[in-house]
Write a protein that binds this DNA or RNA. Structure first.
Lengths: 345, 345
DNA sequence: AGATTTATGAGGTACGCACCTCATTTCGCG
DNA sequence: CGCGAAATGAGGTGCGTACCTCATAAATCT
């Protein structure tokens, strides 16, 4: 009736509790034959370890670290908040999460930070950073110490990261494109693409997905070369103003990265508010307000709460050398309009 | 350093462990002054009960029941699957979920089912059913026995249900409307609305939200009176064919309930596939295929995995008389297009 | 003040599991 | 066959909490 316990397994397998324990925890000193006898009993009874009791007994604490770039990015702030919140409900699972900031763009500082970590006090690390050779080496160093590493929000595929938690940027770009094409509702015209920098993997991937769909499904709409703002509002204003002067039939603006506020201000000053379909990424307080104000038509985003919880689950699984339920960790590409904007908090 | 335990509380409050236990578990026989002394200590030390250990010791099992309508609804099937899956990972939390089916449309059968439940073997009930006086009484009965009840997917606001788990149908309808209006991309025309029955609260609410947005933002588009199919494919075919004959400028079809397959077949037979914007609700294997095939342009849905997990969390909280984290239980109105269709499973 | 009720303390057992020690059995091998 | 090594058993302790009993202390009433 009730769930079988280790004692039931011992009885069923005809061995002692000590042996069951040795097998379950992969401790040495058990003959192969005995191991399989125990495993058979486990399978037969459908035993599942009571993780709560196991953790209680194990008395182990998991100190995880998340390394996020410093700076004033709303996305990073929102992500940090989500992580903090997720960490709170993870205390019951004996997990703690320390959120560390490193100077953005400073790969060496990040590498130094990661280099200082020791397996005895860090059970796993989540890193959000652009891919650089320096970081690649730092991650290799962590791995060689036996510390699991996962990439957060932005993937690091060429490194030895154990996992990536975040959405597929290309799929996000494709989704943005469908909405752009259908909302624009025009057979022809031009689309402005604006990004912080086309060096960032996310922006590249989004643009790629965007182009794929635009070319295939909305061939009449021409997506102009990506304008780069380098994180400066002034630059954004300048390049967008310039682009709008030249391109006379612009139907939409695709914001691959940040800059929603600067764009809204620029369009307002040009008296063009509401004239284009504007589609952006990531739901933050800024983009939320922009959606409500009608300055943005749609936001393609991921649920940061899920992302945060997934991060902790994956870190934990990696620390325990346990398998990951890929299906559960799959994050959806979400579409947010004013009408389905989730309530704040 | 580590989390404080009940022993720390006892020491801090200057009382014995037994008294701390009495206070924490709201057992009688403690003076008000002592109670607050303990509570102060809890607050001072920031004690949080180790739920894992508590449940282990409590040795309590939570048997929950979900009552779903019988029949061949894909939505109900998918929901049942999600509940089953969520229940599997809830065994660690000592919860079991029994999914019971009752004859759809038979409020008395459901009421009888609920009436048989006793507090000693049922810790909480989730009900998905239309609101009827019979059900209202049955829920009142459960509540008087001390069994918490929550409404699943479809709300029962006029009953004494403890909670509703599901999305706001009106918001879902509003979202459908924005997409319809923008995808249709026409200043004028007509929209067909098709529902199983306009007796169902969900359909009414969706239609209300849909109308609100259409009237306000797309005044040129006229939403025709809802066609009712009563769950019959033949009826759907008949009423839609008839409606399309009369209305000459139809731009879109809004499916408030089930019937995606019948609609696709009907449109195919009329040679009208792809001529209208089709928007529906709830992601199921059927609607997934329809999206992929291009028979549907968008699906407004809720994440059934979240719904299922939320259901269990809320039931548990209610059974424990614990507070609910409203923010976490908030389900989002999700928009699914072909491009952001989540991978199957 | 004495009797009675009410609060509190002390201490134990259990939950399912991890992890330890030490004795005993079984195995492999020369 | 005998020996050392490897495998296994028996039994204990502790994790943080619930819940129980019984004794004792304190408050309350007459």
């Amino acid at each position: 009736m009730s769930r079988p316990t280790v004692n039931d397994i011992a009885r069923e397998a005809g061995v002692s509790l000590a042996t069951v324990d040795r097998v379950l925890n992969a401790r040495p000193g058990v003959r192969a034959k005995t191991v399989s006898a125990v495993q058979d009993a486990v399978a037969r009874l459908g035993y599942v370890r009571d993780m709560a009791a196991a953790n209680l007994a194990r008395q182990r604490r998991y100190r995880m670290v998340a390394a996020l770039p410093d700076g004033d990015s709303q996305f990073v702030e929102t992500l940090a908040e989500a992580l903090t919140e997720a960490a709170q409900s993870a205390v019951t699972a004996r997990m703690e999460l320390e959120i560390t900031r490193y100077p953005a763009e400073d790969a060496h500082a990040l590498a130094a930070l990661l280099g200082r970590m020791a397996p005895q006090d860090v059970a796993g690390v989540a890193v959000m950073a652009p891919e650089t050779p320096v970081l690649r080496d730092a991650i290799r160093g962590l791995k060689s110490k036996g510390i699991p590493v996962i990439a957060l929000a932005s993937d690091l595929p060429s490194t030895e990261r154990d996992h990536f938690v975040g959405i597929d940027s290309r799929a996000a770009g494709r989704t943005a494109a469908v909405l752009m094409g259908r909302f624009a509702g025009a057979a022809s015209g031009q689309i402005l693409a604006v990004a912080q920098s086309m060096q960032l993997r996310d922006a590249i991937e989004r643009r790629r997905g965007f182009d794929e769909v635009m070319l295939a499904d909305f061939p009449g709409l021409e997506v102009l070369p990506t304008l780069e703002t380098h994180g400066s509002d002034a630059t954004l204003r300048a390049v967008v103003t310039e682009a709008l002067r030249h391109a006379r039939d612009v139907r939409g603006i695709y914001l691959l990265g940040a800059g929603h506020r600067a764009l809204a201000a620029t369009l307002a000053d040009l008296g063009l508010t509401g004239r284009f379909v504007v589609i952006g990424h990531e739901l933050t307080p800024h983009t939320r307000r922009a959606l409500l104000a009608g300055h943005i038509d749609a936001i393609i985003t991921q649920n940061l709460g899920h992302l945060a919880r997934s991060t902790l689950r994956v870190l934990r699984a990696k620390a325990d050398h346990a398998p990951i339920d890929e299906a559960q960790e799959q994050l959806r590409v979400e579409i947010v309009l004013r009408e389905n904007l989730p309530p704040d908090q």
